[in-house]
Amino acid sequence: MRRGTSILFGVLFLTALGGCDGRHNWMAGAGEEAAAIGDLFLILMVGAAVIWSLVVGAAVYAHRRRAHPGLEREARLFVIWGGVVFPVLLIGALLVWGLFLLKGITADEGDLTVRVDGERWWWRVTYETPTGDVVTANEIRLPQGRTALFRLTADDVIHAFWVPALGGKMDMVPGRETTLALTPKKLGNWGGLCAEFCGGAHALMRFDAVVMAPDAFETWLAREAETAQVAADDPGFQVFLDEGCGACHTIRGTQAAGPVGPDLTHLAGREKLGAGLYEMTPEHMARWITDTHAMKPDIDMPPYPHLSGPRLDTLVDFLMRLE
């Protein structure tokens, strides 16, 4: 048993070494909340390893040694001290620590407020600014060092909002509003996920959480607030309207004002397509329009397989200009 265990520890150690990058890593320390929880985890992990070794070691020792019935008194006291007193004190201390940590990482208000609404299977994102709401989707940009308060809702089923590298997760429950505070520390494009199973394409409900320098963030937000610059006779926009895309999607500043699907006003400015799934390239865009369900099964958006050739190119070209 001993040899097997050491091999297993080795495996854990190697994977631990190999696993410190990764855009979804809790231990990346990219947010203050994640870092606080990460510190807790490190201590818990070391403590658990020590206790496990002691308990299993005691069992192995007890199994291997010769019988000493004279030790009955010691064995019984071992139950009291090892099995009762020590755990009560240790666990009590842990509980108090956990409670204070919880108190520390929750907040009622932040430097900015972002409303996120979980949909099957994408994210409707609304920044609350003094000049009004700024609506976008599937990508959340955050200023470094500022606490963002997320107000989370859902329309259809329960989802959960999670950016592991920045902090803990929070459910999005229909009929309720939950909140989560995140304070990013490290610049970068961190992964966001839906953590609560929401049926169908749950696995493909992702987003990018991009942490930016505060100045760059302000610039981006101001640009995001603008309407799209679309010429009335833009041929791509005509295809967009003819195919009925505007019934579901909004492009602010045009007559396309569908409330169902993601807002496309600055679609091409996002890094990913399909709720955090595919690089934003014309090729992916063309495939997304014509063969939607192969890229993301079960979603509400219907595929447009009849679109091809120049008509498709025009539409893709138009969409890729929505920056």
């Binding site: 994640a34 940590l101 959960a160 999670w162 997760k169 953590a195 199973f197």
Partner: peptide, 22 residues
């Protein structure tokens, strides 16, 4: 015993916010 120890971990609310559903 190992599972019990990780159980003590996930019983702490802040840690569970990361570990839950993962």
């Amino acid at each position: 015993v190992f599972g019990g120890l990780t159980g003590v971990m996930v019983a702490l609310v802040p840690f569970d916010w990361q570990a839950h559903d993962s």
